[in-house]
Amino acid sequence: MKKFEELVKQEIDKYLNLNVGGVYCKVPYIFGSSWMEFWRTGGKGSVEQIKVEAEKLFTLYDLVPAEMTEFERYKFLRDKRVGIDCSGLVYNVYDQITKELFNKPLSSYVVRFAGLIGQIDKLVFSFKRSRRIASYHLTSDLNSFPVENLKDIRIGDMIKMKSSDPEIGHVAIIYNIDISQDEIIYAHSSFKTKTVGPHLGKIRVTNYDLPIDKQDWEEVSAKGDSISTNASSEEGLGLRRLKIFTETI
């Protein structure tokens, strides 16, 4: 269990502290593009892939990251579509963990469809699998189950949320739980919050008997509304755990 939690934090930290050319580069939010653009990370890349792509682009355009301001580096990467979206972040964090713990990629475990069709789909469409997995796949009943009681929350759990596009949805991942402070820290990559791209958010737990959306969320949307309404338990949203990450990890 401890190794799993360490891995979750370690992998998320890599996205939060991307180093390109010896300097910190904030990773932009990039909406995932089609797998047909397979030569690019397309908003779904691992940290290593994003770093390599960023380095190549800086070199291609004869730019030295160390000679640019942080905002210039961020804008350049965003304009060149180097970044990560919500499901890309969670997928790649889990992917590194399953490779570390089970020696298999996450694509071996996550399905898009039920039954035999799902298995065939997994086999046939294995190329650039991360580009085909969206947040609603990760948080669906095929791949995850709801965490009913807030007291059972673990680092590495997902928060299933809704987005402006109901067919796509949004997902965050629990980064840290501080029982003494009654704080839950989550990580997600979003573009409709005040902070864009991968970042951490804080939830203050006021009542452990209530679902997570009823707690005190610190983060607000770009319009100033609390984003807790996007994780409404009444709508079947909220805490979920990937089936493969059982108690034994």
Binding site: W39, E53, K56, L57, T59, L60
Partner: peptide, 8 residues
């Protein structure tokens, strides 16, 4: 090469 390999 610029588009697909990100290299000149």
């Amino acid at each position: 090469t610029k588009k697909f390999l990100l290299k000149k």
